[in-house]
Amino acid sequence: MSVNEKRTDGRFQMDRRVVVPKLVGNPKDFLIVSGLAGAVYDMSSLTDQGDYFYGLGGAMGGACMIGLGLALARPDKNVLVVTGDGELLMSLGSLCSIGVINPPNLTIVCVDNGHYGETGFQKSHTNRGVDLELFAKGAGISQTCTVSSEDQIEAGSKMLRRVGGANGTAFVLMTVAPTEAPKVPLNLDGADCRRIFLKAQRRAA
């Protein structure tokens, strides 16, 4: 597939390496869970594998519900889930299970590049008309927005950070170009990641 063909849809323009950090801001303001592939690279890079971050290297479709379990357990913290279009398409029911509870300390960011980057940039359903923000709305998630251009980042960031108050879960769809996420080394030892996360939370308690 040519680069031109990948870029035919005007929604998928921004460089994730630039706009994901802009959207999230200081990652230490959150407990963060990421899905696999692009999202785990984005967040491993942004957090420098921080001890407040747990990222998946597999278990595709798990990120949103890990975020829900964490958000319910830690109402004192804001929980940020970062996922991709491919992972979210695999677990759309999770949006419904989250929407009916609608915890105000949970935000989901879907970095949507319209492709399965990890397996060779095959087009995903979002590149063929599927709108994941509409899914989130339909699931009953009360605050949603789409960020497709640089001038929309500020509004997305405000929603993500609950500027003006939180009355439920927020969902931010960020559409980006089908380009590589930052290729930082990952810690793929899940048990190690869990232990680091738990230790940091115990220390902070």
Binding site: I66, G69, A73
Partner: peptide, 22 residues
């Protein structure tokens, strides 16, 4: 009480609960 659309959601939920000390 967390109603699920499909059972695997409950597996992932349990991981998140553990990360939050529950």
């Amino acid at each position: 009480s967390v109603g699920l659309a499909s059972e695997q959601e409950g597996v992932a939920l349990a991981a998140g609960a553990d990360l939050g000390g529950e």
